[in-house]
Every structure is written in structure tokens, then in C-alpha cells.
Computed example of a mutant assay.
Amino acid sequence: MHLTLLIPELLWPEPADQAALDQLACPTLEKLLGRARFQRQPRQALETCLAGILGTGPRSLAACRLAGESRDPGESSWYCADPVHLQFHHERIILGNAELLALQTEEVEQLLASLNRDFPDLGRFHAPHPQRWYLEAVPGLNLPPLPPPSAATGRQLGALLPEAPDLARLLNELQMLLHTHPVNRAREASRRPLVNGLWLWGGTGQAATAPGPERVWGDEPLLQGLARSSARDARPRPPHAQAWLAASKAGGNPRELILLEQLLAPALVEDGDSWKAQVADLERHWIAPLAQALGRELSRLTLLSPTAYGLLQWELGAASRWQFWKSARPLATLARQLADSPP
């Protein structure tokens, strides 16, 4: 059986941050990285990586993610219209993460009502989840592509926008409505981050770059929707490797993928302590048990990670577990080496 672990941000994006990178509790992971065959590709967002593995079929990324919310996108044209917090940082506007907003259902309903009232020429806004909003676009609406959230969060707004005056004007109009909205006035009074922008992305599709796995495991709606759009077996993420091994032994699928995204959120908000704790959790519940299974229940293991250093891939076969002469590769050392040699 061949398993791919898709682990975004497996390397901390700040190579000089000793507090985050030093004394990591992941000896098995570092041992595996030292024995693996390593490949490095240009930087790629998690969402783009998933689409490249599974393909979107005839749908857009937005329609696939909506399908993963257990909602039929039908024949409509969809964009993800995620709420964001735009903040000033060193005289620049930085795109914040929707998770920081902690939006309540009543707030979302009020904001959507205003958007649908003032922007009927765009289509209709929907929010099956407080952090994940959608625009069901009017026929013929064709917005220039914006990078997905995992590639945009924490970056300067000006560097993310294409040369598209109409899009810039639209985003400004949305910001103006949101900035003066009663919901944001109440949030400002209680010193909570403002919902002062929408990030419109995912309006196009993507073909798979290679034959993908037969079965995927994960809770991310985009993963679930991509799998459903390509008629793959999609299941919730198991709690640990032993649970996956027990379930896969009964299924007998030769190629499977598990999305382990718990390092992504702390990396996006630069929370080194949380990232470090999640690395230790991955080591304990996933990496160490799978290392034991390699060469037994598991014939091949791929570690795939979209990072600030590029899309990184490590391949391990059954014989890898016996290559004792190969030294471990500490994550801190690897991050510094990759930072010194851009792809």
C-alpha cells in the first residue's frame, strides 16, 4: 500500500527563528527525512496542490469546496468570497486570516443581507460556514484570479492583486460597505477585528497532473469536494495512524492520501509555540506509528508539504527503514539550507 501524507508547513517559514525550530520533539520524522529521496518544486498553495493531485473535473475550485460543504453547486458559476481582516503593518495593508474573526452566525446573516442588497449585479452571497463564504455569480461575471487563502494570508495586499482596475474597484466598494456596517461598529466597540474585506478566489478549475489516490482522508471541505467531483472515496480524517491502518487493511486500496493540516493555522498566524506543539503531536500519533508500519503493512510512504521554501516531497520505500547509515535531517538545519538556496 502507498500512502501520501499531505502536511502543509512541515517546515517553519522563518529559518532564523530558533525558538520555533530548535529542540523539536520529532526524532522519527527527522530520521525518515534523512533516509528519504527528496524532491523540491516551486512554491505552491495547499489549495493548488490538492487540485493538482485530485483535479476539479468540470467544476471550479469554489464549486468543489462548496460540494465539500455537502451542498450541490448545480450549474451555477461560483467564487469563494471569504471574509478577511485587512490590517496595517509597517505602513502596508496585510491580509489577515478569517479564523481570527471568530464570526457569529447573527453577524454573518446581517453582513450577507447587506451584500445581497447592495451588490445584486454580482450575484448572491451564501455562507454555509461563518469562515467560508461564496458568491453565486451572475452569468458572464469573470473576475481575475486571486491566490487562495493559504498563499495570501499574512502577505501585503498590493503584492497579491493583479493589474486589474475593475477588480480593485470592486474590492474597494466591498470594503467601504463592510467598514461602515453596524456589525463592524459593534465589533470595533468591543475591540474585535473587523470584517473589512472579501477575498474572491477559486473561480477556475484545474486538471490533475498525475493519477491520484483512490481514497482520501481529511476534514477540509475542499479535499472532500475535489474527491467527490472525481468520484473518489472520501472519508473523514482518522484520529491517528493506528485507526487508519485498521481501516485501510479492510479496504485494500493501493494508493491513499491523508491531509494533516494542523501545522497550517499556526504558521499563518506566526504562532511558533503552537506549531512546535503540533509537530510533536504529529510525531507521536502519525509519523512514529507509520515508520513502524513501513515495510510491513505499508510498502511506500510519501511526505508532501507545501511550504514557504517550495513544494517539498520525500519518498520512502520498504528498504528505507534499514538504511541506518544515513544521518537524520533536523528540521531546523533543513529550513536554513533551503532558505539559502531558493528553488
Results as ranks from 00 to 15, higher is better:
residue 1 M to L: 14
residue 6 L to P: 13
residue 19 A to T: 12
residue 25 A to D: 13
residue 32 L to F: 10
residue 33 L to I: 10
residue 35 R to L: 07
residue 37 R to D: 14
residue 41 Q to W: 01
residue 41 Q to S: 08
residue 45 A to F: 05
residue 47 E to M: 00
residue 64 C to I: 10
residue 65 R to K: 12
residue 67 A to Q: 14
residue 68 G to Y: 09
residue 68 G to M: 09
residue 73 P to G: 10
residue 77 S to D: 04
residue 82 D to Y: 00
residue 88 F to P: 02
residue 109 E to S: 15
residue 112 L to H: 07
residue 115 L to S: 05
residue 120 P to H: 05
residue 123 G to H: 05
residue 143 L to W: 06
residue 143 L to S: 02
residue 145 P to L: 14
residue 147 P to C: 13
residue 147 P to G: 14
residue 147 P to N: 08
residue 148 P to N: 00
residue 154 G to L: 10
residue 157 L to F: 09
residue 162 P to C: 13
residue 165 P to Q: 07
residue 165 P to K: 11
residue 173 E to A: 08
residue 176 M to A: 06
residue 177 L to R: 09
residue 178 L to V: 09
residue 180 T to A: 12
residue 182 P to N: 13
residue 190 S to M: 06
residue 194 L to C: 12
residue 194 L to Y: 04
residue 200 L to K: 11
residue 204 T to D: 15
residue 219 D to V: 11
residue 222 L to G: 03
residue 225 G to E: 02
residue 231 A to N: 15
residue 231 A to R: 14
residue 236 P to S: 14
residue 238 P to K: 01
residue 240 H to A: 01
residue 241 A to I: 02
residue 248 S to F: 03
residue 251 G to R: 15
residue 254 P to H: 11
residue 268 L to E: 12
residue 272 G to H: 06
residue 276 K to V: 01
residue 296 R to A: 15
residue 300 R to V: 03
residue 304 L to M: 12
residue 318 A to S: 15
residue 321 R to M: 09
residue 334 L to H: 05
residue 336 R to P: 05
